[in-house]
Nucleic acid binder design. Structure first.
Lengths: 340, 340
DNA sequence: AACCATTGCGTTACCCGTAACGTAGTCTTA
DNA sequence: TAAGACTACGTTACGGGTAACGCAATGGTT
């Protein structure tokens, strides 16, 4: 509460508690940490003043004094509209919270320069570690991370030579698998609808994997990338419209994720296309919307929450001094449905 | 990166830079802050060592020394699967980041005791302020907040006598409006489908407002609450099934939010009910899924991102010493569609 | 009764920066 | 040429805790 309104208009320090209780700071400190070396009567005096004054310990000072690291773990995420990242963040935060750490959020809006600015700021506030999304970071960011000497986990995209540690899945492969799947269904003219932030990211890897599979299978790929938009329902809708206008005769479309796929599905069905007879629709991610969608969508299942938990676990193990496997693959599962 | 791998295996302090440059800590500090009072040759010596040693300033020590508050703002959110909260958090983080603050996340999973535990932890790490969701907090949490003497914004649910400051909308009224809307359409047997975490929250206010309007209009209300589930597509689906099994003949259903409404819509349509002729479907929140939904859903539009921004602005203004209106109403808009 | 261990505290130094103040040397100016 | 202003630093103290150490009083042992 703001100062004007609260009963205590300044923070109470341990020294004030100690003075009020008629003991030294050190004795008060020992009582509060229940570390022994004090009498019962002293304990009561100190605790009575703690209660009366509403003392709240300042752990920042403690950590500062002891040379400990802070409880803060910086977590950089491109955006939260994307349910995949929201789920990953839930997994991370839950695991970190269980071990007494605090999640400090950084939303990069898919821009490496935003991530760089955030990394510089957060590093100056002494986080114990960082979790970043993806494998692409600005050169200056990489230098700063090297100097910071704290553990870093790159998650989402698998990276065989990470800065430090990595948890993710092979997006290229998952795209390639889906491309093969559609080729084997007999399709040859295939589309892709996604977003584009001018940056190499995991979605782009999926698209490249997909394109490679289609080319390897003798097919043709047409793509439409919505510039600087979020991969959600509506971009899926208008992206499909633009793709089909530019490339009539596409037999199936692979979408960046399930929300976009649902948007594309709605566009197709709303314009008289039968699915999957006239056009196939394929998503990615197994997002919540699929649980009630009227047709079982062909998609790729990813355990987002688990991915977040694993990223947090790797960081926590390192912080607590355990040896850690630097790279973990959480995998994916291609799930054939009724839409392709 | 972890210590074993990085070039510098410990953090470089200002004192080390100063020693290497052959000056005092204070001179190095002045150079780094470009605060004047040093010669060009000294500047070059210091900056050369900063570069060579990879020095990163420790702002925590600075803040500590200057008696400043930390940049950390604690933000407590029930869950991130709910897109409304994800959008609010984006609004908060973007605004806070613009002003050099850092968002520290706390996910309460709709449990006041989780919120209490998180508040205790975060307060001991000296945040500059807090943003909490809703108006219900545990008594101990309230005491701790009073003692902390930092600004607190309660957001989401409007609260005429907040702990400190408040930004939100009148959920009860928005539910009441929707109840009247359905009564005026001529419906009398009305349903509600939502979730229940055993806590008085904003969704419960909407439900109470809705029930009051229906009763005032001479109607009958039937409800189904999914226990401890997230208000997403699938709970909307199965909640509708359970409601309709228990109460056949319901003429329209008000859902806790749009995602649940879409789940309910899918259930109804999948079971041969025509919408809105056999049953009306009404959502809340104007969530992204509506942009492509095949029928225009009757809903309530809420500016979630704006709400988050306003909450952050209130906190920032208080922190920078400006006078602030303690309570702001961001309002809502009932949007009639084609589903009721 | 002298000795020693234990108990229960206090004192000092330190963590990493910055504010406030001190000071030696240079430059003006009357 | 001496007083005063200015430049370019250094020194000290401080913030909120804790580690390490010191020490007086108490109790038990021989």
């Amino acid at each position: 509460m703001s100062k004007e309104k609260s009963s205590n208009n300044k923070k109470i320090s341990l020294a004030e508690v100690a003075r009020a209780a008629g003991v030294s700071k050190m004795t008060a400190s020992r009582v509060l940490r229940d570390q022994g070396g004090f009498s019962e009567s002293t304990r009561q005096k100190v605790m009575a003043e703690v209660e009366r004054l509403g003392y709240l310990p300042n752990r920042m000072a403690t950590a500062f004094a002891a040379g400990e690291s802070s409880p803060f773990i910086g977590v950089s995420i491109p955006d939260l509209r994307n349910e995949a990242f929201a789920q990953i963040l839930e997994g991370i935060d839950h695991k970190l919270g269980t071990f007494g750490h605090q999640t400090v959020l950084g939303l990069s809006r898919h821009l490496p320069e935003e991530e760089e600015k955030w990394i510089e700021k957060i590093l100056s506030w002494q986080p114990a570690g960082l979790i970043l999304t993806g494998r692409v970071h600005s050169p200056r960011a990489i230098t700063m991370l090297k100097n910071a000497a704290i553990p870093v986990v790159e998650m989402w995209d698998l990276n065989s030579s990470p800065l430090d540690m990595c948890v993710g899945l092979n997006h290229f492969d998952s795209g390639y698998q889906m491309g093969r799947f559609l080729i084997e269904k007999g399709h040859r003219k295939l589309g892709y609808v996604g977003t584009d932030h001018g940056v190499a990211n995991a979605a782009q890897s999926r698209w490249k994997g997909f394109a490679k599979a289609v080319q390897d299978g003798g097919g043709e790929v047409c793509d439409h990338h919505c510039l600087n938009d979020v991969p959600d329902f509506y971009p899926g809708y208008y992206g499909t419209e633009q793709l089909l206008n530019a490339h009539p005769g596409v037999q199936a479309i692979f979408f960046q994720n399930d929300n976009m796929a649902v948007g594309g599905y709605e566009f197709c069905e709303g314009h008289g296309l039968r699915i999957p007879d006239d056009i196939g629709i394929v998503g990615w991610g197994a997002l919540p919307v699929l649980s009630v969608f009227r047709k079982k969508l062909t998609t790729v299942k990813v355990r987002h929450v688990r991915l977040g938990q694993l990223a947090a676990e790797k960081l926590l193990s390192t912080l607590h001094g355990s040896a850690v496997q630097p790279v973990s693959d959480v995998g994916y599962l291609t799930v054939p449905g009724a839409t392709a």
